Amino acid sequence: MTSQRKPRGPYRKGIERREQILQAALDVLAQRGERGSSLQEIADRVGVTQPALLHYFSSRDELLLAVVEQRDKLDPVVSEGLQKPGDAIAAAVQHNMDQPGLVRLFVTLSAAATDPSHHAHAFFARRYGKLTSRIAPGLAQGQQSGQVRADVDPERVARLLLAVLDGLQIQWLLDPSVDMVQLVETFTAMYTECASSEPGSVAEG
């Protein structure tokens, strides 16, 4: 039995440097947003020149898309699915509210990616399909445990949930007084309320 070897030498250093650049970009964009940041600022944080940065990310567009992908990996709903509907969604919404710059980048890039010729079009098209397939099983499990209404289709609810989350982000960016957590909880109640009274559930005595 052989263990998987970690990359060594220049290749490993290249991977580590790329991760450092990506983390610096996440930090800068979370604070300042796309328009308020520059490749030079990101390069300065890592201690490399801008040409060196572009050795790891061939363009600003490639770096921005990598940042959005990394943002998804840190999102509880995206990375873990939906095992506990209320808890997971609230955590994801709060996570996003703590980094408005990345929310703005996501909204801007996803809107632009609706153009089939856009460099991020394929990523976002795959993203929603993958997210639906991750969230729907958690909702189906919720139906079995009585947490989710039995008369709703898990895949349709998953699609609606993603639409609600994305739409609320736009409203929040336009008006920060919008309480995304509260509104998402209202939507969640629509497919969880009265779940305990569905056929086959055990009523409390």
Rank of each mutant, 00 (worst) to 15 (best):
S110R: 08
S110D: 08
A111F: 11
A112V: 06
A113S: 15
T114K: 14
D115G: 09
P116G: 05
P116E: 07
S117H: 12
H118T: 10
H118N: 14
H118S: 11
A122D: 13
F123P: 05
R126E: 15
R126K: 11
Y128P: 01
Y128F: 14
Y128D: 11
G129C: 03
R134F: 11
R134W: 09
I135L: 05
I135N: 05
A136C: 10
P137F: 05
P137Q: 03
P137C: 00
G138P: 03
A140Y: 06
Q141S: 12
G142S: 10
G142T: 04
Q143D: 14
Q144P: 02
G146S: 09
V148G: 08
A150Y: 05
A150R: 15
D151S: 07
V152T: 13
V152E: 10
P154A: 08
R156H: 12
V157G: 01
V157C: 03
A158V: 09
A158Y: 08
R159P: 01
R159M: 11
L161D: 02
L162Q: 14
L162M: 13
L162F: 00
L162E: 06
L168H: 03
Q171V: 04
W172P: 00
L173M: 02
S177P: 03
V178L: 00
V178T: 01
D179M: 00
D179A: 06
M180G: 07
L183T: 11
V184M: 11
T186D: 15
T186C: 07
F187S: 04
M190W: 01
M190K: 10
M190N: 00
Y191M: 09
S196L: 11
S197I: 04
P199C: 02
P199G: 09
G200A: 09
G200E: 10
